[in-house]
Amino acid sequence: MDRIKNIAVVAHDNCKEELLDFIACNREAMIPHNLIATGTTGRLVESLLAEGVARGQEPKRVQRLKSGPLGGDQQLGAMISDGKVDVLIFFWDPMEPQPHDVDVKALLRLAVLYNIPTASNRSSAEFLISSAYFDHEFCIKPGRYFEYADRALK
């Protein structure tokens, strides 16, 4: 993983404000990295980061995918499996059933399968970005799961 990370930021509706506040409070840490986001979250993050122009920062373009329920979670999962995502920050709502729960579960499964550092709430996101590895190169060890594809069938 390079020093400049490809960071996916996703939030369910009830968690969008918290994600935006997290990014606003950590703007300096997030600005150098490439951001990827699903649907509305992407638009909101892009708008938030554009406000930094007044402070002399470059506007940040966010790669926006489709909304989660419309396939954005699956697009993001494909990017993880293609090695195009280094970090996943996904503030998901544990109290609200989602119409696309199966897609959310598949996305989180791929993050674990490909050993992607993942934050699911404000505390874990703060720990993740304060890691010594956040702004440095880091080698992700492939998970043991890939032995499964090469297994001998009986």
Rank of each mutant, 00 (worst) to 15 (best):
F90S: 11
G68C: 03
V85D: 06
W92R: 12
G52D: 10
I89G: 00
K84R: 14
V62G: 15
E58F: 08
E58I: 10
V62M: 10
F90W: 07
V53L: 05
D86G: 00
P69M: 04
S67I: 08
A78E: 11
V62W: 09
L88F: 02
M95W: 12
F90H: 09
E51L: 12
R64C: 15
G68T: 00
F91P: 04
Q98A: 02
P97F: 06
G52T: 05
S81G: 02
I89E: 01
Q75Y: 05
I80Q: 09
P59Q: 06
V85N: 02
L88C: 03
L70P: 03
K66T: 13
S67E: 14
G56S: 12
A54I: 08
K84Q: 15
S81H: 07
K84H: 11
K84S: 09
R55F: 00
D82F: 01
P97Y: 01
V87N: 00
A54V: 12
L76K: 03
E96I: 12
Q57M: 11
M95Q: 10
G56L: 10
M79D: 14
G68A: 06
A50P: 01
D93K: 10
K66L: 15
L65E: 14
A78S: 13
P97I: 05
D73N: 09
V62S: 14
P97V: 10
E51T: 11
R61A: 07
Q75M: 14
E96G: 13
D93V: 04
G71F: 05
P97C: 05
K60L: 11
A50E: 09
I80L: 02
G56V: 13
P59H: 04
G83N: 04
P69T: 00
Q57H: 13
V87I: 06
R55N: 05
W92P: 05
F90A: 07
D73W: 05
A50Y: 14
F90G: 09
S81F: 00
G68V: 03
Q57W: 11
Q63Y: 04
K84W: 13
G52R: 03
L76P: 08
V85L: 01
K84M: 12
P69R: 00
R64N: 14
G77Y: 01
P97A: 12
